[in-house]
Simulated assay, not measured.
Amino acid sequence: MTALPALSAPQTRHQRSRGEVAAAWHMADGQARLHRLRQAGSARAVALPGPELVVLNTSGGLTGGDRLSVTLDVGAGCRVTATTQTAERLYRAGEGRAQMDLAMAVGAGGHLDWLPQETILFDGCAATRTTTIDLGPDAGCLMLETLVMGRAAMGETLSRVALRDTRHITRNGRSVHLEPLLLDPARIAPHAAGLAGARAICTLVMVTSGAEDAIGPARAALTDPQVTAAASAWDGRLVVRLMAPDAWPLRRQLARLLAVLRHSPLPRVWQS
């Protein structure tokens, strides 16, 4: 009698989300107008007057193996604000890493405000995010990224996290600002070499002609007693770094800072 081969357990293939948004603007009749919008998979976008673009991830968050892509092309002379509908969430990854690729280009004399809402990290998350902004001649941008280490109101704490978050701004192919950030268990620890107990951190970068002149008003706006912040500026670039014990005081401080730097209201979804 021939022995039957042992049956192996079936391999479970988990469903992964894929999302893509691509938008472009150009000048028409003296105004910046949206002339191309593509959205696929779990990613959606809503175009508002301003012009303003709101990106949505309908999957509710990202985990290992998920992919999200955002491509923005701001034409010459256009001024555009782009943000996210709500906070992005990076959930525990059973296997693999979530991947987020954000590529933006701003034509000559244009300006982009990239103002996403917070990214909330959950214990066990693993993700790689790359944000690139390429500026044309006399173009400018205002970019911020906020990371929140779990939800304080839910009593969440992080012990395992793996995030590579790279932000790169270039002008005509030349690097203007490069910021690689790595978060792992050692770096989120509550000591001086880690986050020193902060649960929310943010970096704001403004690259435009005369950005260094904004350092005085920016520093004057950093008044929230619960937020530790510092600003520096040189050669057309302003950098502000902030950290707080929770997301709310940091958001409150950011609203005050953005009001000074933008001279215009916050994106509509920030005000809801």
Rank of each mutant, 00 (worst) to 15 (best):
residue 23 A to Y: 01
residue 45 A to H: 08
residue 122 F to A: 14
residue 14 H to T: 13
residue 232 S to Y: 09
residue 204 L to Y: 11
residue 30 G to V: 03
residue 189 A to M: 01
residue 203 T to P: 04
residue 191 H to C: 08
residue 176 V to S: 03
residue 169 I to A: 00
residue 217 P to K: 01
residue 269 V to F: 01
residue 252 R to K: 07
residue 140 G to M: 07
residue 251 R to A: 04
residue 158 L to I: 09
residue 137 P to F: 04
residue 52 E to Q: 01
residue 272 S to G: 12
residue 11 Q to D: 06
residue 92 R to M: 14
residue 227 V to H: 06
residue 258 L to G: 08
residue 165 D to A: 02
residue 135 L to C: 03
residue 140 G to D: 04
residue 208 T to M: 14
residue 109 G to T: 11
residue 168 H to P: 06
residue 33 R to G: 00
residue 255 A to Q: 14
residue 60 G to V: 07
residue 172 N to A: 15
residue 36 R to C: 12
residue 105 A to L: 11
residue 37 L to F: 08
residue 60 G to H: 11
residue 265 P to Y: 09
residue 47 A to I: 12
residue 258 L to H: 08
residue 21 V to N: 06
residue 270 W to V: 13
residue 268 R to P: 00
residue 104 M to G: 02
residue 81 T to K: 06
residue 240 V to Y: 00
residue 129 R to K: 10
residue 209 S to Q: 15
residue 39 Q to F: 05
residue 73 D to F: 01
residue 35 H to L: 12
residue 225 P to F: 07
residue 193 A to V: 12
residue 88 E to R: 00
residue 146 T to Q: 10
residue 129 R to H: 13
residue 180 P to H: 03
residue 250 L to H: 00
residue 116 P to E: 07
residue 99 Q to H: 14
residue 65 G to D: 11
residue 131 T to H: 04
residue 252 R to S: 14
residue 2 T to H: 14
residue 103 A to Y: 13
residue 24 A to Y: 00
residue 79 R to C: 13
residue 154 M to K: 12
residue 80 V to F: 02
residue 198 A to S: 10
residue 195 L to T: 09
residue 48 L to F: 02
residue 187 R to C: 05
residue 220 A to K: 02
residue 120 I to F: 02
residue 168 H to D: 05
residue 24 A to L: 09
residue 89 R to G: 03
residue 166 T to W: 13
residue 209 S to L: 10
residue 249 P to V: 06
residue 137 P to T: 04
residue 223 T to A: 11
residue 61 G to E: 05
residue 104 M to E: 10
residue 136 G to W: 05
residue 163 L to V: 14
residue 3 A to P: 06
residue 146 T to E: 08
residue 207 V to D: 02
residue 109 G to M: 09
residue 182 L to C: 10
residue 182 L to K: 10
residue 114 W to H: 08
residue 143 M to E: 15
residue 47 A to H: 15
residue 184 D to R: 08
residue 140 G to H: 08
residue 159 S to T: 15
residue 190 P to F: 02
residue 1 M to V: 11
residue 134 D to C: 09
residue 7 L to V: 12
residue 4 L to N: 09
residue 236 G to M: 06
residue 153 A to D: 07
residue 231 A to W: 05
residue 187 R to E: 09
residue 118 E to V: 01
residue 142 L to Y: 07
residue 168 H to K: 08
residue 95 E to N: 14
residue 263 H to I: 11
residue 107 G to K: 01
residue 29 D to L: 03
residue 56 L to Q: 02
residue 150 G to K: 01
residue 68 L to Y: 15
residue 166 T to V: 15
residue 139 A to P: 07
residue 237 R to W: 02
residue 216 G to Q: 13
residue 250 L to P: 02
residue 144 L to H: 10
residue 115 L to S: 04
residue 107 G to A: 03
residue 122 F to Y: 15
residue 105 A to Y: 05
residue 75 G to N: 04
